[in-house]
Design a protein around this nucleic acid. Sequence first.
DNA 1: TCGATTAGGCTGGCATGCTAGTTCGCCTAG
DNA 2: CTAGGCGAACTAGCATGCCAGCCTAATCGA
Lengths: 253, 253
Amino acid sequence: MSTRIGGMTAGTPKRPRKSPANPLGKGPGRPHAGTSESKVDQIYGALKLAIVGGELPPEAPIDKVDLCARFGVSRLSVTTAVNRLAFERLVVVEPQRGSYVSRIRISDVRQWMMIRRALETEVVGACAQHLGDDWIEQLDRNMAYQRTAVKSGDLDGFHQLDIAFHRLLIEGMGLDRVGEILESVRTHVDRTRRLLLPEPGRMPATLKEHQAIYRTIADRNPSAAARAMHEHLDRVLGELEAFQERHPNFFTD
Amino acid sequence: MSTRIGGMTAGTPKRPRKSPANPLGKGPGRPHAGTSESKVDQIYGALKLAIVGGELPPEAPIDKVDLCARFGVSRLSVTTAVNRLAFERLVVVEPQRGSYVSRIRISDVRQWMMIRRALETEVVGACAQHLGDDWIEQLDRNMAYQRTAVKSGDLDGFHQLDIAFHRLLIEGMGLDRVGEILESVRTHVDRTRRLLLPEPGRMPATLKEHQAIYRTIADRNPSAAARAMHEHLDRVLGELEAFQERHPNFFTD
DNA sequence: TCGATTAGGCTGGCATGCTAGTTCGCCTAG
DNA sequence: CTAGGCGAACTAGCATGCCAGCCTAATCGA
């Protein structure tokens, strides 16, 4: 598909660099396959994925020396990566005590969704006014894929397409800074969602809402677009709150 | 306010090998238990203040070894602090080339303001519905101070009260995560504002807008509150765009 | 004299060693 | 048997040293 799935990662400063993979370093040269990423970026990404994917649940301790051995790097790289995650509130590091995956605060989830709703509502209104036809065409393609995913019941694929749909709106308007904030927010929201949501029955409803949003954009109706997005995200928030009520043990506050 | 770091300007003659500037003998002795600020936090804060305050203008190179000598710490602390700033897009670090204060992209300013408008509009609507009376009283006090500042022409004091006014809305609703994002945004916006805005004539207009916002909150009128905040920030955005036209050399794009 | 090549001096990235503080368990004394 | 204290082993923070890329300039060859 032409809609990129793994495009913008929030906040990571990119560096245009080739890495010759350090042929002669002392210490155990880990011939980890050729990645052009910096070492801290690698660890940062891996940890983030593990946390968001639920592999590292809240309260899970983060053993830095173990990670050093696992990735074949020094403590500094691991520490830097963990500090970055702490900056994003995904982990908590207590000096001289240890680091662990942060718990999820109910108030935080509500705020993330509020932020998402406010920003995406604004964005979709702008989209309905100024989004280029080529981008609308891409949205159309994405909708087709979504329909296919729903038909075949591909839950994970639909989730990816869901993300891509929302990302297209941002990218199409060139709002990269807004996109960074939303990526960060989505990270947190996804963490709670992955933890608690295996509900396939929601797919058709979500598809319908996406289609409504798409239609208002294609029709160039900003206020309707904002309304549709608002309703869409309100529904997601309601979903999350229902889950929070059913699984109170995962949350704080 | 007068947080001079020292003669921090571009192109300082450097003295490479002068590391042990620790006045307290051996070991990283903590000064006293009162200030539990980490060294990287100190440097991070000082640099951030210098950048936002305009002391370090865009494109100004960041000499790490010079900062090491100036603060009497090692390169690692400085590097960590600079990396944190790079994460916030306040500085750009090019590997093997150098680090410098980031330039200001026009598109970024527009996006920051768009984010601020979207979030604060949402927040002020919630305030009009649920803000506690004690917080409204605090807002009232703040407004009184604002009037005093305008009367006496205290531009800098008014700016601080302006910030405090907006912060009160966030704190009063307990929206700490929203507040963090807005703080980050405000950092960027303030940087351009401090760089270019010495306009005292705007104070009375801003005061009027703040008073309008306060009134709608006290009157418990959410839609009017949102409208007032929207207009207020739209005006600020227009101001910033006017400045950008007058000083195009400070911007990119 | 002019151009191309190389060496040195800048930069940041990474590894390692050391210090300090907290916690927990074991050992001893009551 | 219990309670208190002391030490070992964990943690993070910080300094330093070394390595590798880039840019510049000086030098050597045509």
